[in-house]
Simulated scan of single mutants.
Amino acid sequence: MENKKNIMDYETVALDEENHALVIIDQTKLPGKTEIISLTTQKDIWDAIYLLKVRGAPAIGDAAAIGIYLAAKNLQTDNYQEFYTEFKKAKEYLDSARPTAVNLSWALNRMEKVVIDNKAKTIAEIKELLRQEAIAIKEEDIWICQKIGEYGLSLVKPGDGLLTHCNAGQLATAKYGTATAPMYLGHQKGYNFKVFCDETRPLLQGARLTAYELSESGLDVTLICDNMSSNVMKNGWVNAVFVGCDRVAANGDTANKIGTSIVAIVAKRYNVPFYVCAPTSTIDYETPTGKEIKIEQRPDKEVVEMWYKERMAPEGIKVYNPAFDVTDNDLISGIITEYGIARPPYTESLQKIVALKNKKQQ
């Protein structure tokens, strides 16, 4: 009998070169159905990012890199200026899918740099360099998550209770996840963590995705409603909080899934360390503070209709549905990156992290 594939056996994001496609897990169908979809048009890729079929800052960056490579691959011209003009249009189109996660524009800008830096080469050579860069972005994502996991694991001990919000797991990256990386690496070492997952209203990424992938991997995981985090922390069941991040402002304010700031405030009240797991690609020095981070507004129906057989609010009621909130830097115990852990004051420590990254990449 053929063994049933585990969700962790699938690649979150992949390039199918033969069929000219971006291949992803449709995360809107999880956990009830594992559907692998192949996206061949820019409209399909844009929709997949906007509709959260692929989501999580690193995975969005991986998908965008592959997506813009496929757009470039399909351009039928040998003229550099024509090629670059059409490439730029495709880049701006994909970049418009979601505004808050900095990895989307970061990955697309990195791909554009390949085109600009190699304009003396043939179009065929540029296309090959774009393919290599897209693959490199994904491979770096795996390395980054593993390093974040190693640094995060140094902050906890066997048997600890951990809490996370939303999904910053393997389904949000190429492998390991960011916030879940310490959990997976600890599980491999027999740490026997007890993990609490906030359900994460209104899209339930914690319930549908994090609880699913952690349980499929054999971790001890307990699902809680968002409004239960105070209860489990007050009971002393949580020793540390790990969350992901979509953008880090220069002062250390961080944007993550809506409800993250509530967890941070509660953790501060009960003296539970609150750690943000953030690849250096999410650090945005063009954004001085969290106040300047553009917060995506989502459709009303996600709150009042999406998970119900019948509408669960009065017709015509006003709905406020921001996708993210900003956690102030004074609530954050540390920002865990692939080059180390930044501590307050973040205006200084983040610069040191980035300087270390630049030095090692020289």
Rank of each mutant, 00 (worst) to 15 (best):
F193Y: 07
Y176I: 05
W106L: 14
E139V: 10
L219Q: 15
T222M: 12
E112I: 14
A90C: 11
R201K: 09
G159F: 08
E128A: 12
R208V: 01
L130E: 03
E139L: 04
I142L: 10
Y184R: 14
P182E: 07
Y184D: 07
E213N: 00
M183G: 06
W106K: 13
A124T: 15
L162F: 01
W143A: 10
Y184G: 09
L171S: 05
P202T: 05
L94K: 00
L171T: 07
A107L: 00
Q188A: 12
L219C: 14
L223P: 10
I142Q: 12
H165M: 13
S154H: 08
K119A: 14
L214N: 02
A181I: 02
N192P: 11
Y176V: 13
A101M: 04
G177A: 11
E140F: 06
L155A: 09
N167T: 03
G186C: 10
L219S: 12
C145V: 07
L155C: 10
V221M: 05
L104E: 10
A211P: 10
V195Q: 00
N227R: 04
T210P: 13
R201H: 09
E216S: 13
M111H: 01
L108W: 01
D95S: 09
T200N: 10
Y151E: 10
I142W: 08
A97W: 02
L223G: 13
A101G: 07
I123T: 07
A211R: 09
G159Y: 09
L171E: 04
G169V: 05
E125D: 11
I135V: 15
G159M: 07
I135Y: 09
L219V: 15
E199C: 10
P158V: 02
N227H: 02
Q132V: 12
A174Q: 09
A174V: 08
I123C: 08
T164Q: 15
K189R: 15
N118K: 03
E150K: 11
L104F: 01
K119S: 14
T164A: 13
K189E: 05
N109D: 15
V102C: 05
E140D: 13
H165E: 05
E133I: 07
W143Y: 13
N109Y: 04
E213K: 02
K113F: 00
K175H: 09
A211H: 14
S105H: 14
S215D: 15
G161Q: 13
E213I: 02
S105L: 06
K157V: 11
Y151A: 00
C166Q: 11
G177L: 03
Q170V: 09
V114D: 00
I126R: 00
E216C: 13
E213D: 02
D198Q: 06
L209Q: 04
Y151L: 05
A211Q: 14
